[in-house]
Every structure is written in C-alpha cells, then in structure tokens.
Amino acid sequence: MTALPETTARKLGLVIDLDTCVGCQACVTACKGWNDQGYGVPLSDQDPYGADPSGVFLNRVHAYQMQPPEGASVVVNFPRSCLHCEVAPCVTVCPTGASFKRAEDGIVLVNEDACIGCGLCAWACPYGAREMDAAAGVMKKCTLCVDRIYNDNLAPEDRLPACVRTCPTGARHFGDLSDPGSAVSRLVAEREGYALMPEMETKPVNRYLPPRRKGAAGVAPLVPLVDVQATGLAGWLDRMLGKI
C-alpha cells in the first residue's frame, strides 16, 4: 500500500485563513476530543498532571511575529496539521504499508493495525504532521476526520472535520481542492492561497490564505468646518447648526 495512487478522484483538504485565525486553539482541542474517541487508538497523554506533561495532538497552532518593511510589527497565528500531500513522502517510506493515501479522496491515513511504530514516516514529513502515540506505539496523524465527513450518523451539515466545525472565526475551510468550482478552490484563487515548503516537492493539498495588508485605510483627512480658535465657539456653532 505504500505506493501512492497515480491520481486521486478528489483532493479533499483544508484551507486555512491566516488573516482570520485568532489563535484560539479551539481546533486543537476539538481535534483531540474527536480523535480521542474516533479513528484508531485514543490520543494518549503522558504525565498529564505531572512535571512534564506531553501527549499526541494532530493539530497545533503556532504564532509568529514579523516586521514588515513598513508599519508596525505583526503577529500571525499559524495552525499546522497534515496537508494530505499529493506526493506524500510519509507514505512511500513506510515499510509496512500502514501509511497510505486513499485513491478515492486523497486522504493520507495510517492503518494502525499494521503500523510498527518505526517513526520513519514522521521523519519523512516536512511539516511535523505526524506524532507517535507513546502509549500505543503507533503513528497518529490528522485523518481529515474521515470518520466524520462521510458519517451517515451525523447530520449532513456536521459532516465536516471537527476542527472546521468548531473554529469560531470560520478560519478553517474544508472541501475538494481538485474541483476548481468548489468553495475552497475559489477562496484559494481569490485570496492567492499557497502551499507550504514547495521546495520539498510534496505538493500539499491544503492551502493557506495569506494575511491581508495591514495598516491605515488611507481615508482623506477631515476638513475643519471653521478655524475654531479664530472664530470661537460661536462661529463653530453657526456653521455646525446651520446644517440641520
């Protein structure tokens, strides 16, 4: 199963709007909550109340700061999860066939029953999208909520990844990026969505929408009615109230 499908019928993925993400971490725990009881083994935590807690998360939100050439410094929140790459190196390195990319929709998954926990796929992924579960010894990664998006037990409007459904600002979008007419494809086209680390030649499906330009609106300055210091309040009042 380690070979990649030549093509996939669809390219399901996420489009993440960096102009809108406030870094609230809602998608992080929603993802943890769903996947803790969903696809595969639960996402374990080690030393959860101890001095050195750590556990598996499939989605993590960074924050970066930049100094643009003009204007004030900016901060951008940056969610990071599996990008469901078309040329997924994590799949081809896998010795067991546990990692695979679905021909149907392009979702990259780990078959946990076959995974030996060698960790090589995580090494092969440029984006840090894979984390080994220390309790179960198998590799975990974003499933694109494959057990939600087709789930007949959920209302049709809930057949969305947990992170997308919960994102309070609507910064996360889910859809088929192979269909140029899909809402996500149109967003990518309009907002010049981009792929991460193109030099890795992984051809990610997920896209990021860049922050919009920031700064002053460039509205024409206000023009004083009169020179108040010269006319006094009375002159100003005349001009002002003459208007009603």
């Binding site: 199963m1 380690t2 070979a3 969903g38 696809y39 066939g97 695979f100 679905r102 021909a103 998954l109 078959n111 029953d113 076959a114 494959v146 057990d147 087709y150 789930n151 007949d152 037990n153 959920l154």
Partner: peptide
Amino acid sequence: MTAEPRIERSPPVS
C-alpha cells in the same frame, strides 16, 4: 501492492 485497507467511515458517534 495490497488493496487499500477498508476503514469504518461511518461509525456510530454516540
């Protein structure tokens, strides 16, 4: 190459 594993796409939620 083996076939893609079958996965449960529609598990009961609760």
